[in-house]
Amino acid sequence: MRRLAMIVLVVAVLAAVPFTEASNAVLNFLVVALLIALAGQGWNVLGGYGGQYSFGHAAFFGTGAYVTAVLQVRYGVNAWLAFALGIAAGALVGAVIGALTFRSGLRGSYFALVTLAFAEVLRIVASVAPITGAGVGTLIKLDLRHEALQFQSRAVFYWAILGLVALSLVIAWAIEHSRFGAWLTAVRENEDAARALGVDATRVKLGAMTLSAAITAAAGCFYAQYFLFIDAGIAYGPWISVEALLTAIIGGAGTIFGPLFGALLVRLLGEAARLVTGDAPGLDLVIYGAALVLVVAFAPRGLMGIVADIRSAFRRPAPRPTAEAAGG
């Protein structure tokens, strides 16, 4: 329950930002950061709690984005419905890829590789298929009405993505407090031992992947609706696979708040890099990559791990290093 209260508190604080006369630039920054946090929370469900490291979450992000955009533009489907169908399509792609890979017993390196390959296939298909607008991309018509899921005010968009992030936090909380979550972390820690205790590992991983894909797809749907333009490189590009993973790992994989704080930090770093060096492409990603390596090397439990260490240091003035050391 304390965690749930924390979620309410964090979301409430973030929800108050538009009332502080924050500039559009600040809101825009936060919208993008929250969008990445949402994609990252998707990755976290599978990678953080389930230990299955996907290098291809772009497959879900892009599917969400394209389904939302194409249904509206080509088939005149209502934007709200298109958004929901985008999430469902992302979940479906996740379920299909999951069923194929987990049934074949792919783990570790192979799982990373095969998810990456699926994302790349989708990117190439999207860059040539007429229905996606091929190389030109897809443009959603500007139509600032609530029915079209577009808003005059950036603040409304901001609250919308914040609402989705809040939902994803609650999902993570629910995972931590459910049988499904216990099974999922058991599979992450030791798949054979989990199976011996009655866990249907394949089904649990498949469930996690479907949920994970749905969450990341929601981020893609939102992207399409916010920027009103996507192409293959944006929707299915490696950038989103990397950022989804990065925010979760840097924030703390397998924690509720890891992806959110990770995304805020990573995006702040990127913004700082841009301020210092002008808008030179590449530098922000160099910093992201370096942050990833540094976190793996020196803070394997990410930001949340650092926070936990600090807190326990305060609680116990004379910390005993024994448990950590023996855990090695």
Binding site: E189, A196, L197
Partner: peptide, 19 residues
């Protein structure tokens, strides 16, 4: 032995109990 190394003793046993 195959403990779930990152989980606590209680959480380890709870995985079995969840069945």
């Amino acid at each position: 032995v195959q403990p779930f190394a990152g989980l606590t003793v209680r959480e380890n046993i709870a995985v079995g109990a969840h069945m």
